[in-house]
Design a binder for these strands. Sequence first.
DNA 1: ACGCCAAATGCAACTTAGTTGCAATAGAAA
DNA 2: TTTCTATTGCAACTAAGTTGCATTTGGCGT
Lengths: 143, 143
Amino acid sequence: MKSEAIPAILKKYKLKVTPVRIAVLRVLIDSDTAMSHADIAQLLSDQHFDKVTLYRTLSHFTEKGIVHKVATEDRSWLYAVLAENNADIATDKTHAHFICDDCDKIFCFPIDEGSGQSVKSMKKGFLVKELEIRLHGVCPSCQ
Amino acid sequence: MKSEAIPAILKKYKLKVTPVRIAVLRVLIDSDTAMSHADIAQLLSDQHFDKVTLYRTLSHFTEKGIVHKVATEDRSWLYAVLAENNADIATDKTHAHFICDDCDKIFCFPIDEGSGQSVKSMKKGFLVKELEIRLHGVCPSCQ
DNA sequence: ACGCCAAATGCAACTTAGTTGCAATAGAAA
DNA sequence: TTTCTATTGCAACTAAGTTGCATTTGGCGT
């Protein structure tokens, strides 16, 4: 993605364009996997942003729908940009998370509507609004 | 479930029969939803078990496969007994978690093998070993 | 270009869920 | 009953994330 595009995304979501936001959004867009607060802080450590600012940046992005977050098995959050901001990555409503048991990376990708339908109707009395599918296994680069 | 059955389950999994374990297992078997450490501590508060003992009891149960755990959206764990110990509840490998957006309770139930298959083969290069499906919506008692 | 002000930032202190180390205790096998 | 290992309880600790508050700054109106 071109550098100029990043401020444009922030403006589109009515967020002020600041150095932290540009840096964090670039990192997320460039990543092929969902990233934790710690991952991002590590990558941006030379710019010494405050950890609280990073948390708040990520939660602003989540509220606005620029990114979405996934709870991991070790009580932390991973963040990944949503489809309209990066064509490679899944949309919000129906998507799968692939968790590599080897490298612990989480990949998001869209699934076809159909594969969820059989599940949605399976238990009487439960009204299903949203669906998340989690797959555990081994990613291509760890095989 | 009859009271005498609980020590039998513990013995079956080669765990010593102790008061904490009997109490915790009974609570889990009697519940129709997955429960947190805090939920269980609350219910057993009159017996003043140490919180560390409860954590260790739950992780022993998980290691032995008596219960399984689900990560929640608020970075904590919920526990539910597995099928062989309670016919109403899902098996480990292929099951769904229904999260009620109203009362936040999590229900587990089994799904037919078929509904996962279409997802498992969807992205080339990813070797899928396990599948978890999460459904968000409204449970029968909140409608 | 300038000033204003709500929004954003940085710092310190705090919260919450869960973990570790260790000494004391208690199942259950012999 | 004795013994031995697993289990328990307590205190201190860790890691991820949050809150309060004073300071700074992006971007709008003029």
